[in-house]
């Protein structure tokens, strides 16, 4: 894992430090900055050193001090910015995951069991819609419909109302309801479809026949024997999705103005703030790698045949 992160950091370092289309020193200096000023800023940011020295320093900073350097944009330490943004992203992700799984399971199961029924067709049609709708658009529509400031039906807290859980649990919760729903909608749809196809396949397995032959109720057969086996493909996808979302749900965070990692990355990209971009990329990669590890462990937990 360390090695993987090292490789990723080297690649992003190359992309963001060695081959940028804009020179951060020049950005900082402004368009009429004198060559002396630019040189001084370059020196100050360490950009005048050979690339491998810069990289060595960068990695050394991370390894020794968990230091990701300073934002070119705000002069704030990148680590502090990320740590600062993490709670929002975790809040968004965890809530959305819970919500979408809660939605996806019943829909997926009913659709698989009552395949080609009206319920199935409606659910899968709806799911297809939700999957194909861009999250950004979905977010805007949700706000225009249901937010209590700009919505037609003033039900939920709107954009920009997020507060950290430590500040006010109630506000935290109500401000995240709509983002959770929007994020969950597209994911729930995808998971429902995935579960449906996986469960459909599993229900044709011999061991399901065995379970029925044992005289178990249909409920037990489907939930305990069918779903248990059918979640395997979901585990993989879920792990990756969580990893990716922790790396930042850029669009949802943007529409709802939730100050998470995704928005940090988005703002950094807009501002060519390479130190911050690099930091968020590394964090994202870290989360995805960790998610992969967790997926592997979860696999072993779910499927006793898998051993490490």
């Amino acid at each position: 894992m360390g090695v993987l992160l090292l490789i990723i950091s080297a690649i992003t370092f190359l992309i963001f430090y060695a081959l940028p289309s804009t020179d951060p020193a020049q950005l900082r200096a402004g368009r009429s900055g004198s060559p002396e000023l630019i040189a001084s800023i370059r020196h100050n940011l360490g950009l005048d050193k050979p690339i491998y020295v810069q990289y060595y320093r960068y990695v050394k900073g991370i390894v020794l001090h968990f230091d990701f350097g300073f934002s070119y944009q705000t002069d704030a330490p990148v680590r502090q910015q990320i740590v600062d943004r993490l709670p929002a992203t975790i809040s968004l992700t965890v809530g959305a995951v819970i919500l979408w799984l809660t939605l996806a399971f019943p829909v997926g199961i009913v659709s698989a069991v009552k395949r080609r029924s009206l319920v199935d067709r409606a659910a899968m049609g709806g799911a297809l819609l939700a999957i194909s709708a861009p999250v950004y658009w979905l977010g805007l529509v949700a706000l225009y419909l249901f937010s209590n400031d700009i919505g037609q039906f003033k039900i939920f807290d709107g954009a920009g109302t997020y507060v950290p859980i430590s500040q006010n649990v109630g506000t935290w919760f109500s401000s995240l309801l709509l983002p959770w729903m929007v994020l969950a909608a597209s994911f729930a749809a995808f998971y429902a479809r995935l579960l449906r196809s996986s469960l459909t396949e599993v229900l044709h397995e011999d061991y399901i026949r065995t379970a029925r032959a044992k005289g178990l109720s249909e409920r037990t057969v489907i939930l305990r024997h069918g779903v248990r086996a059918a979640i395997l493909p979901l585990v993989t996808v879920l792990g990756l999705d969580i990893g990716i979302l922790l790396g930042g749900a850029i669009l949802t965070e943007s529409v709802f103005n939730i100050p998470g990692i995704g928005r940090l990355a988005y703002d950094a990209i807009k501002a060519s703030d390479y130190a911050t971009i690099q930091g968020t990329v590394l964090f994202g990669a870290f989360f995805i790698i960790v998610a992969n590890l967790i997926v592997d462990i979860a696999y072993a937990v779910v499927d006793p045949r898998v051993r490490y």
Binding site: G139, L140, L143, Y144, D149, I150, G158, A159, G160, S254, V255, F256, N257, P259, R263, D267
Partner: peptide, 17 residues
């Protein structure tokens, strides 16, 4: 100051609130 508003949403909010 709420920083980082979505441009479309912010416009609507100012319009409505």
């Amino acid at each position: 100051f709420a920083i980082g508003a979505d441009p479309n949403v912010a416009g609507q909010q100012v319009f409505a609130s």
